[in-house]
Amino acid sequence: MDQTNPTNVITATGRTRSVASHCLEIFAGAIGWGAAMAASALAALYLRNGLLTSHLTALMLVYFFGGALAWPVLVPLARRFTRRRPISARFAAFFLALSIGTVAMTAFLFAMDYRWFYSRWHAPFGSLIWTFQFLFTGASAVYQFAVLGLILFMPLGLLCLIVVSAYLARQVR
């Protein structure tokens, strides 16, 4: 295999593979992780109130995209820092990166949805008042997500996080 070919990447195990297969792996992982986070939220809502909410589709989209947008950034980053480390360190790195990153991205998307709803009552863009309104609306949305939204990761999300972190830790050498 030609390691100087720009269409190839060297993986953490020292193998060479194509950029297309690397991108496909990241894309498939993002879709899978997003689906797992949406399924976790769906399971939690079902256990909590039998899916009796008028915003089910919006919630599923926020949780799906929170997971799907966090994966392509955090998994390659964690892989980069866990090369030649013991498996326990790799597991911890993937566990922390995926948990913190997924929660942060989902909270960000929740805050942007919250901001979009309240933007009709805010001052014109770029003004000092708008800046305060943007910051405090975002902060209150993140707080509300921390109180009400984190629990939706618990029934299935924690199990998925442990399994995926263990899989990724074994995959990287």
Rank of each mutant, 00 (worst) to 15 (best):
D2K: 09
N5T: 10
N5I: 11
P6Y: 11
N8Q: 15
V9Y: 00
T11F: 02
T13P: 03
T16W: 13
T16M: 12
V19E: 00
V19I: 12
E25H: 11
F27E: 01
F27S: 12
A28R: 13
G29Y: 05
G29K: 09
A30D: 03
I31C: 12
W33Q: 04
G34T: 03
A35H: 06
A35D: 00
M37C: 07
A41K: 04
A43Y: 08
L47P: 05
N49H: 15
G50N: 00
G50S: 03
L51N: 04
T53K: 04
S54Q: 14
L59M: 12
M60K: 02
M60T: 10
V62H: 07
F64L: 03
G67S: 03
L69Q: 06
A78H: 01
R80A: 11
F81D: 03
A89M: 08
R90N: 00
A92G: 09
A93Q: 07
F94C: 09
F95W: 15
L96T: 10
L96P: 01
A97D: 07
V103K: 05
M105H: 06
T106F: 05
T106W: 09
A111N: 04
A111M: 06
M112G: 02
Y114N: 13
W116M: 14
W116I: 10
S119D: 13
W121G: 12
S127V: 06
T131M: 12
Q133I: 08
L135K: 00
F136E: 14
T137H: 06
G138Q: 07
G138N: 14
A139P: 05
A139C: 11
S140N: 15
S140A: 15
A141I: 06
V142T: 10
Y143H: 13
F145A: 10
F145H: 08
G149N: 00
L152Y: 14
L152P: 01
L152F: 14
F153V: 11
M154C: 14
P155V: 08
P155D: 09
L156E: 02
L158R: 06
L159A: 15
L159D: 02
L161H: 02
I162C: 08
V163H: 06
S165D: 00
Y167L: 15
A169D: 06
A169S: 00
R170Y: 03
V172S: 05
R173G: 15
